[in-house]
Computed example of a mutant assay.
Amino acid sequence: MKITITDTYEELSALAAIQLFEAVKQKNDLNCCLATGASPMGMYKNFIDMVKQVNLNIDHVLWTKLDEWVGLPLDNPSTCESFLKTYFLEPLDIKSEQFLSFQADPNTIQQECETIHNKLNERPLDICILGLGKNGHLGLNEPGEYLIPNAHVVQLDALSQTHDMLNHQVVTQGVTLGLYEILNAKKIIFLVNGADKKAVYQKLMKKEISTTLPASFLWLHDNVEMIVMRDVAE
């Protein structure tokens, strides 16, 4: 794992955006998994500005959603879908066929998990953008006795149920790509931002791999670029 420590969120965002931009320049049909939340927001803004500045052709890139809250309509402002449309897809005029998404309807979600897994077997991720959850989760792969490798429905732990994105809405389940699909990505850009992540970051840096800390499985991947804020790392 390559670790870069930055002094500001702006620096973290710029470095991450450059990595994605260069990857798209090198492979214009790559498959990139998009995380949501405060950590990647600045990265997305920088990437959008860079693409527009040079008019980079991204018409063949596939953008894959990492996870979603189960039970909320996709047009609900708190969904990952709404976040990605607002802060990434719409500013770049991404076509619907370039976005690998999934509904979060409890009645159909199991079948959708199978569909997503099959599609990622056909076209594996080239890049996966991740943030570090306050409880150490990756996507919505929550801490527990075991982890599930493929896309699946998960019971959210208490901390995830109070995520800022939910804005006090009651959600008890999520759907997420599994650890196999995440670790199968050729490269992972791992963003660690927020002073409230310090304790879980310190636990991660012990390099002890455990299902109680899903992020620890990133130590098994040979191409992880972690960009971490100094107030978290020190």
Rank of each mutant, 00 (worst) to 15 (best):
K2N: 05
K2Q: 05
I3Q: 13
T8D: 10
T8A: 05
S13H: 10
A17E: 00
I18M: 05
Q19F: 13
V24N: 07
V24K: 08
Q26H: 09
K27S: 14
K27N: 12
L34I: 04
G42C: 06
D49W: 01
M50H: 08
H60M: 08
L72W: 02
S82N: 07
F83T: 11
F88G: 07
L92Y: 01
L92F: 11
L92H: 00
L92W: 05
I94E: 03
I94A: 12
S96E: 14
F99W: 08
F102Y: 03
F102P: 08
Q110R: 10
Q111P: 06
Q111T: 15
E114P: 06
T115W: 10
I116G: 05
L120D: 02
R123V: 14
K134N: 03
K134F: 04
N135Y: 00
G139Q: 09
N141V: 03
H152C: 04
Q155T: 15
L166T: 12
V170G: 01
V171R: 00
T176R: 00
A185F: 07
A195N: 04
V200W: 00
Q202V: 02
L204Q: 03
L204H: 04
M205N: 11
M205P: 06
I209D: 08
I209K: 03
I209L: 03
A215N: 04
L218C: 04
L220I: 08
E225R: 10
M229R: 04
